[in-house]
Amino acid sequence: MEDLLVIAVGAIFVNNIVLYWFLGLCPFFGVSKKTSTALGMGSAVIFVMTCASAITWPIYTYLLIPFNIEFMRTVTFILVIATFVQLIEMVIRKYKPSLYKALGIFLPLITTNCAIMGVALLNIEKGYSFIGSVVDGFSAGIGFTLALLLMSGIRERLEFANVPRSFQDLPIAFISAALLALAFMAFSGMRL
């Protein structure tokens, strides 16, 4: 039995999905200008990532492996994730309009968010069990939100900083991300 705490801490800090695996960079730079939107995007990602891990794992283990068609993994995963996100969007639009207002606008963005697909693939690659995959998906989402929140905090302050003209906006965001990644590298020294 794998240690769930190790998986969780690993996914949040040590192998952070954004700062270590470079996944989900588009929303990381796209919606990190304000803390409030970052939080909304983060919660949507946590939710979808957890569910996507919970769905793709059984599909791979009980459908693709028995029929010996593991090579269909990419096609299957992306379709399942895209369909799932669409369904969720429809369901919450109908039954929970308040939630839809908060998360809805981020959902379409998530379909092509490589972090979701990346976590589904990593779960298989790392050979996690079902519970392990779900925990990994959830923690990776937390890690994403953490990185996004830190980044948006930094960028909100950068608004008031006197940044050289050629570095304004994206370049300085990349440099900040570099420093953030450097700080997160210290976690890799943790013995898990």
Partner: peptide
């Protein structure tokens, strides 16, 4: 070669293009 280097490189290249 580690993750921070990647962010740093693209940041500097984009700044040069802006410049």
């Amino acid at each position: 070669i580690l993750p921070p280097g990647a962010f740093l490189t693209i940041g500097v290249i984009m700044a040069l293009i802006n410049y």
